[in-house]
Amino acid sequence: MTSLLATTLPSRFRWTDTLAWLPWIISAGIVGYAFLSGGYVVTLVVFALIYAVFVIGLNIFMGFTNQVSFGQNAFAAISGYTSAVLTTAYEWTTLPAIAVGVALAVLCAFLIGYPTLRLKGHYLAMGTLAIGLITYEISVEWSSVTQGYMGISGIPPLGIGAYEVTSDRGQLALLVVIVLILTFMSARIRTSRLGRAFFAVAGSEDAARALGVDVARYKLASFILSAACAALAGSLFVHVVGFVSPEVFGLHMVILSFTMLYVGGIGTVAGPLLGALIVSLLPDTFRAFKDYQDLAYGAVLILLLIYAPRGLAALFDRYVPAKKVGGAP
């Protein structure tokens, strides 16, 4: 799995440089279309953008640092349920509830990540999968707080103090702002000392350590950043839908977010947003196929992974390791 780190712009302008904007233009087109047309598409895009928040985080841990986690849904659940319980049972307002939810999830990520991140490869995958499953079980069994399978309803919408964002378009606009801020942050991380340390861990742990990079520490930092995004996505979800149950943060979330990350482009900046939008909208574009809808969706995913193995955003990336440079081989 290769990821790309871009820092210095090429000195000479090439027309292909404009292609780098294509993922953004496509994403803006989809969001713009939803905003204008309203109705069901807005709902789809709102959920896509919530997933984009989740996937931006997943990309930091999996794309930048080249680790694997099947358990980020745990942090979405922790923050989502915290938000839900504080706003319903304790009648908090939305913003502080989200803040406490994310903070709690980050604390859990620190406590869980510290021992778990000693694992590597498949073992790390199994360990993180267990975190997600355990959290799911807790959300089912701890019914005095979570109300088990019944779930918690009547969660207030997003908003600041008395001002609540209730319209579809209002939620869409708010989520666009949140996703843009997080994308900008991920782009800045990618071209900083912190990002280079993440990419160094991804490239060669031995070499990173030999250059004084504290590998364990940067893995943990990357895991925590990733968990913070997952947590924010979890809280946004419960406030947008107004309801939470254990199924919301189940294994389905993990599978969907992985698909989005790989289709969009792992390790790229635009990938999570593009992947989230496309994977969310793709099943519906094949509605005309009726019974064969899932088949068509599956076929397109397979074609994408064959012809764009590093994801759609990577197709337009200028920093692709292509040709060998001059000199003797």
Binding site: S3, T7, T8, F199, A200, G203, S204, A207
Partner: peptide, 9 residues
């Protein structure tokens, strides 16, 4: 053991 995912610089 280079960082293959990064440029030379």
């Amino acid at each position: 053991q280079l960082f293959q995912n990064m440029s030379v610089l």
